[in-house]
């Protein structure tokens, strides 16, 4: 029973694969050293002085910077999502499992956290701690916790209503076993979809923070930072703003599409319909 993959999954998958590929390649090879300053040949155009995509205001190779920036971007995405999953999923799972006061507490704290936009939280973090990639990642990750907790709780409550959970409780399966054996496997698809979408938002958030000077600090290649620096030279070298913008746009689009695609693929109603025919 083969069926066609959702087109968004394919498009998203290709874009994401491209970003990952570039980031991996950048760890072992870039056309030039992305941090090497060459003030003499600053703001070169495309192909000038051996710079494939030109050079920036300090004479660094734009292409190498972009490639290295992909690494930062992916790192931020992965770390924030890992933080959000590691904290949010157990919280949501426990809320669904135990209900009562615990559930109330988790949900109310989530509400409070949700009231802060991720960026505001990150700015707060940057003010309290040292601005930097790590601070940004922690802030964005924590800001994502409520959305994961809520999604897992919602899906988890549905699982808890199923008769197989009642049966399992009947022979004495404890909360931990219910969580590991039934709840988590059945909410897995929801987590994956949420993670992909969160990944996209994280990329955007990191870029925004770096642009504002609250994220990645100068010296580390970052698309958001490049965008901020390009702003000053927009009149002389407009393309310097276009490249990182394009990279951010395409990767966000890629992860969003991938999330949509996975959701379509795993949508239970769809699967049901397929099973019936």
């Amino acid at each position: 029973m083969r069926r066609r993959l959702p087109p968004s999954l394919l498009a998203g998958g290709v874009l994401v694969a491209l970003v990952v590929l570039v980031a991996v390649v950048a760890t072992i090879w870039t056309p030039r050293n992305p941090t090497q300053v060459d003030v003499v040949r600053r703001l070169s155009g495309i192909g000038q002085n051996g710079f494939l995509l030109g050079s920036d205001q300090l004479g660094r190779d734009e292409l190498s910077l972009l490639m290295a920036g992909a690494r930062t971007t992916l790192l931020v995405g992965v770390v924030t999502v890992v933080i959000a999953v590691a904290v949010g999923v157990p919280l949501g799972g426990l809320a669904a499992l135990f209900g009562g006061a615990l559930e109330e507490a988790v949900m109310r704290v989530s509400d409070v956290l949700l009231a802060f936009p991720a960026l505001v939280l990150a700015i707060l973090f940057a003010a309290v701690f040292r601005p930097g990639t790590v601070t940004a990642m922690a802030a964005i990750g924590i800001a994502f916790v409520p959305s994961f907790a809520r999604v897992v709780r919602g899906a988890g409550l549905q699982v808890m209503e199923q008769d197989y959970v009642t049966v399992a409780r009947g022979w004495g399966s404890g909360p931990l076993r219910l969580m590991v054996r039934h709840l988590l496997p059945n909410v897995g698809s929801v987590i994956i979809v949420q993670a992909t979408v969160a990944f996209a938002i994280a990329i955007l958030a990191e870029a925004s923070l770096s642009y504002l000077g609250l994220g990645t600090t100068p010296g580390t290649p970052s698309w958001g930072l490049m965008l901020a620096e390009a702003q000053t030279y927009l009149a002389q070298a407009p393309l310097l703003g276009v490249w990182p913008g394009l990279c951010i746009g395409l990767s966000v689009l890629g992860f969003s599409l991938l999330g949509d695609g996975i959701r379509d693929l795993l949508d239970p109603r769809l699967v049901e319909r397929m099973a019936q025919t």
């Binding site: 199923q162 008769d163 009642t166 049966v167 399992a168 004495g172 399966s173 076993r177 054996r181 059945n186």
Partner: peptide, 29 residues
């Protein structure tokens, strides 16, 4: 004391194989 429910679709964990489902009580107990 064991129970059988009305709707077998809701009563079986879709992510487990038949072997896992049937043997689960032996493991838990």
């Amino acid at each position: 004391v064991q129970i059988v429910f009305q709707d077998p679709t809701r009563a079986l964990d879709p992510r487990m194989t038949v072997a896992e489902i049937v043997l689960e009580p032996l493991r838990v107990l």
